[in-house]
């Protein structure tokens, strides 16, 4: 294929020479899915009950914005407040049960190679980018755009987008309530593994944000591996 030129301003990709570590599944088992998500792109997949999804942070500190739905009833979906309330903790780490809007377990973090993940900061969007950075960034790509595009493949729309989880993103809450996205705690090849507690549709946006440190200002790929644990 010949390269064509284009006048379209597209998002950034990782710099030449960036360290990439594709790693392997964090838990042993029969691989039933193994896909690579390019920088800036959305992804979705179904993880059946009992299967384990490993997400590899291939280039390090790449936020993977994530939403989950019960495949049998998409109205039951990931709920940040239920997850936080049942855990009585603001961060996601090993053992965290990711709960639905009905308070039921969707997935459980069964393996984890970084201190904690964020589920407070939500997703970036073209619209919220205008608040945070100014109207000049309106045509930057955002996670909400990825979620809308990928959700539409499953019959879901804007009514179905709720507060999400951000794998490999770091959002501390300080004692006075100050909160924000700061430099990440991850590195190339670090992984998290989540076991499905029911059949779950997983949507991921490989975050294209270039105005804050949620991907180290260097968007890199993610690898998604689903195994039937052995």
């Amino acid at each position: 294929m010949t390269m064509i030129s284009s006048t379209v301003p597209v998002g950034a990709s990782f710099a030449a020479g960036s360290e990439l570590d594709w790693a392997q599944s964090l838990v042993p088992g029969l691989v039933v899915l193994d896909e690579r998500v390019p920088p800036n792109a959305p992804w979705s997949g179904v993880v059946a009950a009992g299967q384990v999804l490993t997400i590899v942070d291939v280039g390090g500190n790449q936020s993977g914005d994530c939403l989950m739905y019960n495949t049998a009833d998409h109205e039951e979906r990931y709920s940040v407040p239920d997850t936080l309330t049942w855990e009585q903790n603001a961060y996601v780490s090993t053992g965290t049960v990711l709960r639905s809007s009905e308070g039921r377990p969707l997935m459980t973090v069964v393996g984890n190679e970084i201190d904690r993940h964020d589920t407070i900061g939500g997703a970036c969007s073209k619209e919220s980018n205008t608040l945070r950075y100014g109207h000049h960034v309106m045509y930057h790509h955002g996670c909400r755009e990825n979620f809308l595009a990928e959700a539409s493949r499953h019959g879901l729309g804007v009514r179905d987008l709720v507060s999400n989880l951000n794998w490999f993103m770091n959002v501390p809450v300080e004692t006075d309530g100050a909160l924000g996205i700061v430099d990440g705690l991850s590195a190339p090849g670090r992984r998290v593994a989540v076991r499905a507690e029911m059949d779950v549709l997983v949507l991921v946006s490989n975050c294209p944000q270039m105005n804050n440190p949620c991907n180290d200002f260097n968007p890199t790929p993610l690898r998604m591996i689903v195994v039937e644990p052995s």
């Binding site: 997703a123 619209e127 980018n129 987008l161 507060s163 100050a178 909160l179």
Partner: peptide
Amino acid sequence: LNVADTQKIPWQAYLGAGHPLLSGDGR
């Protein structure tokens, strides 16, 4: 209401006077 944006955009997790309740559409 978008609670994530309501906490993230003002850089403040605790609600109080002056805090906006933001939608997901930047308003």
